[in-house]
Write a protein that binds this DNA or RNA. Structure first.
Lengths: 195, 195, 195, 195
DNA sequence: CATGAATGAGGCTTCATTCAT
DNA sequence: GATGAATGAAGCCTCATTCAT
């Protein structure tokens, strides 16, 4: 009697997660290129060959990771959209981004690590380009909707700032004064009452 | 008659530069890990073994490159210091940074590429950490000197923004609306004169 | 109620045949070495592990195939023996060989493919050697019985020709002018009646 | 002072030959697929990696070998062309083929070994097809020129016989009664004087 | 009987580095 | 200073086979 379909699926999913978790850890710690398939399997506590029952290549493991990261972006967008004023929007954006980053710090470390050497993964350059355009047009639209003037350039500035903050947060999660930074950035988008 | 000492030195320096230029080009295009010593020598038009007369290892080539980059930072600091008001300071800082980046785009691309995977080069992590602290304290001191309140956090925000802008500029040097971005960022530091 | 013995045997035999047929197809198309057990099971539409209930190893599958081929030889011998004159004998030999080849083309393709690399299968070399001697002595005896002079050498020549024809027939089953070739070869063994 | 060009070329050619000789030996003994790159280098007495300074892949080694074999064919053709009568032609053909085969036995063993599994090497199938057509049309033309009737079919028969003989000769170089076989085959093309 | 997850040896290839000339 | 042949460790991946269910 064969193993039931359900039992198999369960095992499969569990092992897949184990592998992905090991991969995030190692990629974050040593970088993607420097992490060998052997090290990956070893960290996950499985045999070398097993990895290939789950992913067709080392690159595929990375892609699976990055795909998870994309979900974080959408969550953050959704959270930001709730903000009524521009300042609220920015505050919610940064806050949510910070939450996602802390929750998936290793994954984002990997992601930032590849941001500037997209050549190591086939097609990553295109994905990144699309992602940047997506983010920029989202920011521009939301700022404009909240009556921020010069929305296109403001979106660029906000984008740069978010990226910069994210990277710092990944690099020094404990020490980074995120709350104050959020306050400061958000305050810039507050409408000056006195006028 | 043997070559004179001076002539020898000249040849040596020229070859060294040729090698470094080839290295920047290739590291920027393909990434450091993906660039082989063989490709490097070939791009520079010299024999494989000759490279080892100039650099003891592949890593040493990278270090030489990154050292050149450090000089850019100091130049930018010097330029920024000339700004009288905080807005002037920020404007000069971004302007100069932009100039250096455009002039040495490939080198900065390499530099950014390694920012988040410092493990690939021994000791790079420490260097980066030091460099970040150096920049942060410079920004904080200069902002404070120009009476910007909450200078520590403002320095963090400015740092993040500068990093973000620099990275975008490296990635899309043609399309990036640098001037407008500088205007927008600088305007935030303008003292609202009484209002 | 458990399956009856007979029903079980039937299933078993059917599965075995399915596997063998898949094996012939794949071995012929991609070669024995290049065909993985996985591909074999997949082509046969059975689970990977099931194959090992029927054959103890990949090699065993091949051996089962080759054994089937041996039967073809005996059938051809029997057919040839019916020929009264030497020409009849040769004609019947070639005709029957052609029939068997067309019927089991893939199997023969595999067989020829291993003829010159018997090392890939333990003991194949010995089997082939025995088979060759068997064929040669059969040919020699039959030619001699039909009063062909110099039977030993004639057997060698006939053997070489049959092998060559067989291989061509396997390679281009449609285009090969088998009938005319048979006529031509057979005519050489026709007794020149007095002339 | 660099090693002179000439000295380098000499070393290169010598090593290349060493590698090719080792390759023929091993491919003939164990088959192409079963011979590992490591075994190849070891048999040649050089380091594993060196092989890749001379050939871009294992397949390229094989191709270099097979190319050498093609030359043998042309030599044999040339020799055969000298024969005045059809019998002379066939005799010269077989004789020369035998000579080449004995001289390069291992190479031909490899060649025959791949004849029926051309899938292992990219493009080999096409090369073989072309080669067969080349041989067949050569044989047909030469037979026709010597007034052999039904030249097309006769070429097919002769081709099959030559292939069969070649393969036997490769497999049992000592024991094969080549001379008598040649006599027998050639005699078939002798014009029957009495008529 | 049947399933497919799991194992680990071994294959091909790349690469930084050394060294004789 | 300059050349490139030579080295061998290490990387990614495939595959026959085993075994718990």
């Amino acid at each position: 009697m064969p193993r039931t379909q359900a039992a198999n699926d369960e095992v499969r999913e569990a092992t897949r997660q184990t592998l992905l978790e090991a991969a995030v850890r190692l990629f974050a710690r040593q970088g993607y290129s420097a992490t060998s398939i052997r090290a990956l399997a070893s960290e996950a506590g499985v045999a070398l060959g097993l990895l290939y029952h789950y992913f067709p290549s080392k690159e595929a493991v990375l892609e699976a990771l990055l795909a998870d990261g994309m979900a974080d972006v959408e969550v953050t967008f959704e959270a930001a959209r709730q903000g009524v004023t521009a300042a609220d929007f920015v505050r919610a954006l940064l806050w949510s981004a910070g939450e996602r980053l802390k929750a998936h710090r290793s994954a984002w470390q990997v992601s930032y690590g590849l941001r500037h050497q997209p050549q190591v993964v086939e097609g990553l350059a295109g994905t990144l380009e699309k992602s940047r355009k997506h983010m920029l047009s989202f920011l521009e639209a939301e700022l404009r909707r909240r009556d921020v003037p010069n929305a296109r350039i403001e979106a660029e500035v906000l984008f740069a700032t978010v990226e910069g903050i994210g990277q710092q947060l990944v690099q020094r999660p404990r020490a980074y004064p995120l709350e104050e930074v959020i306050d400061t950035v958000a305050s810039r988008y507050a409408r000056r009452r006195t006028r």
